[in-house]
């Protein structure tokens, strides 16, 4: 706590000069700053304000207080959506990270044909979520896909139809999501691993530390920035989960695989109820902020100390 104080006074003396330093760069970034303010901050404020109105097809400033939110949280479909997103989010985060890192670590062991494996693992990422969703819809279809193939091999009692079972349908979507996203995380992790100095490995070997232990105790802590990058990419993918669900199940069976983003789109456009859609999107924003603010505080607030 002693360090920040002097640095602040230091800044104070420099401030007048700093405002005019790099004037060209500052001038050049005005369009971007304006875009950020008008489009992101302005658009967000507009949405939040209108979520307290009873806007239907057209936005109107006809305030109704928290009515839209009350309706939102008493709606079964929204509750199912939130629950699905939580399950999908936690599983996707943990599994993508674990599988991604494991694959990267395995590739990093200087195996043969590394390039081939890397391409194979990364390939699904080149497909859009819509294509992924359709492909996995067919693979998981009990009449054509995995279940049918295994039954064809003789196990006639074999049952694997997650997309037709309301209780586990979200895991059917999770499989497709993992298949699509893990390769990309693996590549990020691999880049991080390649950034680790060879000398670390040599030192570990000299000290007689096992490979796994070196990874867990030394390498992973050193790769913190890479993990943060991967985390942000995965997390943003989770929150906006939409096209995969639309392509794979369209929210079915019933409403058992609905997700919040789909609720927003449906209520804004199909139900022509902007207020309700805005309320739902505000809740999505709020959940991001609740997770992001403490994290950003820890991450960037901590920098000053270091």
């Amino acid at each position: 706590m002693t360090l920040p104080a002097p640095s602040r006074t230091h800044q104070k003396t420099k401030r007048p000069a700093q405002l005019f330093r790099n004037l060209n760069a500052k001038f050049a970034s005005i369009p971007m700053i304006l875009t950020a303010l008008v489009v992101f901050v302005g658009g967000t404020t507009w949405t939040v304000v209108h979520s307290f109105t009873k806007s239907r097809l057209l936005p109107k400033l006809d305030f109704v207080g928290f009515d839209q939110y009350e309706r939102l949280w008493s709606s079964n479909r929204w509750m199912t959506s939130v629950e699905n997103l939580l399950i999908y989010g936690v599983c996707s985060l943990v599994l993508t990270m674990t599988i991604g890192f494991t694959l990267a670590a395995l590739l990093d062991r200087k195996i043969r044909f590394e390039g081939v494996f890397r391409t194979i693992f990364l390939y699904p990422f080149a497909l859009s979520f819509v294509v992924t969703g359709l492909a996995w819809q067919w693979i998981l279809n009990p009449d054509f896909g995995v279940q049918n193939v295994v039954r064809g091999w003789g196990w006639t009692g074999f049952a694997f139809d997650p997309l037709n079972n309301p209780d586990i349908v979200i895991f059917g979507i999770l499989i497709a999501g993992l298949w699509q996203g893990t390769g990309f995380v693996m590549v990020i992790m691999l880049a991080g691993l390649r950034g680790i100095d060879e000398d670390i490995w040599k030192a570990a070997r000299v000290d007689g530390i096992g490979v796994v232990k070196t990874y867990v105790k030394v390498i992973i802590p050193m790769m913190r920035p890479v993990f943060v990058t991967a985390l942000v990419i995965i997390a943003s993918g989770i929150i906006k989960l939409y096209d995969l669900v639309v392509a794979q199940t369209n929210g079915g069976p019933g409403i058992s695989s609905e997700v919040p983003a789909k609720y927003v789109i449906n209520y804004m456009f199909r139900a022509q109820n902007l207020g309700q859609g805005f309320a739902a999107s505000t809740m999505m924003l709020l959940s991001v902020i609740i997770i992001l603010v403490p994290w950003a505080y820890l991450e960037f607030g901590g920098k000053k100390r270091g």
Binding site: S75, N76, P166, G252, G254, I255, N266, A271
Partner: peptide
């Protein structure tokens, strides 16, 4: 359209569960 969507959501859930 709003009411229709709500009823359709209910029916989707009712028929599938």
């Amino acid at each position: 359209a709003d009411t229709q969507t709500q009823i359709e959501d209910l029916m989707a859930e009712f028929w599938a569960s």
